[in-house]
């Protein structure tokens, strides 16, 4: 039997807007994935530790405070330091188009901006998670 996709949905930094993160988490779960939600105010270190402990396939980062350029690449860096770069990282939030190429170059596989359908996120994970 095919293993279920495991995803950590995380809120890095101090941002308290968690509506999007929770909607995504629930949609992924309804699509048959196993989802762990970290809650608010997680440091990149805490997120990476949780991801490794929980043996997830992907990490979804949500940030609406404008701190994404600082926080998202740090998660990828730490994954590399822990030899866990096979964990796919994607993100979402209020993220200007101009910042997206830089984030992708830093190893964030995809960025989803306001108005995204949860179906697109599900399709993305099903296509990109290696199983």
């Amino acid at each position: 039997m095919e293993r279920k996709i495991r995803v950590l949905v995380a809120k890095p930094g101090l941002d308290g807007h968690d509506r999007g993160a929770k909607v995504i988490a629930r949609a992924l779960r309804d699509a048959g994935m196993e989802v762990i939600y970290t809650g608010l105010r997680q440091t990149p270190e805490q997120i990476v530790t949780a991801a490794i402990q929980e043996d997830v396939d992907a990490i979804g980062l949500s940030c609406l405070s404008g701190a994404h350029n600082h926080l998202f690449p740090r998660v990828v860096e730490l994954l590399k330091e822990h030899n866990a770069e096979d964990i796919l990282v994607f993100g979402g939030g209020v993220i200007p188009d101009a910042d997206i190429p830089g984030l992708k170059a830093a190893g964030i596989k995809e960025i989803f901006t306001p108005g995204t359908s949860t179906q697109d996120v599900i399709a993305f994970l099903e296509a990109h998670v290696r199983r």
Binding site: L14, G16, R41, S65, G66, A67, L71
Partner: peptide
């Protein structure tokens, strides 16, 4: 900004990247 709202000075480690943003 968020560090102010959560009672951290701008030089606190958790404030990194958030100072002056929202």
């Amino acid at each position: 900004d968020l560090p102010t709202q959560i009672g951290y000075d701008s030089d606190h480690s958790l404030a990194a990247g958030e100072v002056g943003k929202v």
